[in-house]
Design a protein around this nucleic acid. Structure first.
Lengths: 196, 196
DNA sequence: GAGCAAAGCGGAGCGTCGTTCCGCTTACGA
DNA sequence: TCGTAAGCGGAACGACGCTCCGCTTTGCTC
């Protein structure tokens, strides 16, 4: 599960052992640097932390986005899987939606600068963008649909738009004690409710 | 009014004519480039557009933030002044708040990338940050207070936080047809309303 | 009009960043 | 043991923000 491809199991056995080891080292180093200096840390720093050259980093992760995805893949997947679970166990769909959004916000806010990078329209982050969207938008859509079906929220809310909005609200949430993204996201979710 | 200082009118008569002319040229050039390439356009581009050297730009506007402020000052001031006016003419304080926020959103959305720059925690944008905040937060606070006084919205909403939230929601609003910042801001403002 | 100090100007140049490229090193099957 | 291709490192390139300094222009004085 921690490898990119070992499914059918025939043509994939090509990587050298040192290469594989370096990839793991790189992942650990990147995670450490991301925690220390934020997601926008210079690539050189990560290379230095891992004790490898620049070439190595770019061979394993062609773009910085790929590195970020690799580092956070597990957590994004966990968040995605939490959606249906919450829907099954919560009192109402709207409650499930609120809790799920909270999960997402917590994830974003604890990674310095991830939210900012996530929304960056800089080409080269497309894959990062795409990964988050592919994984999370359908879950959000499902939750929205359930809540709309239960007549708890307005209809016509677009999951993509809502996710982007929540992501945007999380930008700069660390590094500013006067700004609490959670509170605003809560307001946004409250605004979703059907006016009666 | 278009000069920085000619108030008391004695010690201020120091600038050479060519300097003054260049400053205006620079302002026009920057405005043009901002429209064409967004607020994050390279300084070199602005210098080229104005037909001056890099040194000139940095002498007149020590940081890029100063240039941005100079270009948009009028519009920000207009927005600030619209607050009390709306409060006086609108049916309810909450309506005034909504209209005023709309004004602000329109301003941000029409300037490519301004919202993104506005929230950047990059040092050197402090003055830009400060200018917007100084000018607009008090107005927003006044509107919030009026609405809270009329029992239309929850109390305890912080004007600074709300402004940052709205600003964040406007990030990337151009350059993505699937994302309409206005709609989300509307939702946020709706979420402000006192739950009854 | 001529001379002159200083205000102003331009762009070469520095440091930082992301990314590429290529000669050397190393793992591993024959 | 040895050949070779996969893998490695870091010098090098281009883009950027910003600084610095020799040259030009301006506006005053005589």
């Amino acid at each position: 599960m921690n490898d990119s491809d070992e499914g059918a199991g025939s043509a994939a056995r090509s990587k050298r052992r040192d290469a594989r080891r370096n990839q793991e080292t790189l992942l650990d180093a990147a995670a450490a640097v991301f925690v220390r200096s934020g997601v926008e840390a210079p690539v050189r720093d990560i290379a230095a932390e891992a004790g490898v050259g620049m070439g190595t980093i770019y061979r394993h992760f062609p773009t910085r986005a790929d590195l970020i995805i690799a580092v956070y893949r597990h957590q994004v997947d966990a968040c995605a899987e939490a959606g249906p679970a919450l829907l099954a166990t919560s009192a109402t769909p709207h409650a499930a939606l609120g809790q799920w959004i909270n999960l997402f916000v917590d994830f974003l806010v604890t990674k310095h600068g991830l939210a900012a990078v996530l929304r960056s329209d800089d080409a080269g982050f497309e894959t990062l963008h795409a990964y988050f969207l592919d994984r999370l938008v359908p879950v959000c859509a499902q939750l929205l649909e359930a809540a709309a079906g239960a007549d708890e929220i307005r209809s016509g809310i677009d999951a993509y738009e809502l996710m982007r909005g929540v992501g945007n609200l999380c930008i700069g949430a660390d590094s500013d004690p006067r700004y609490d993204a959670r509170r605003l996201v809560e307001l946004l979710i409250a605004g979703l409710r059907r006016p009666h």
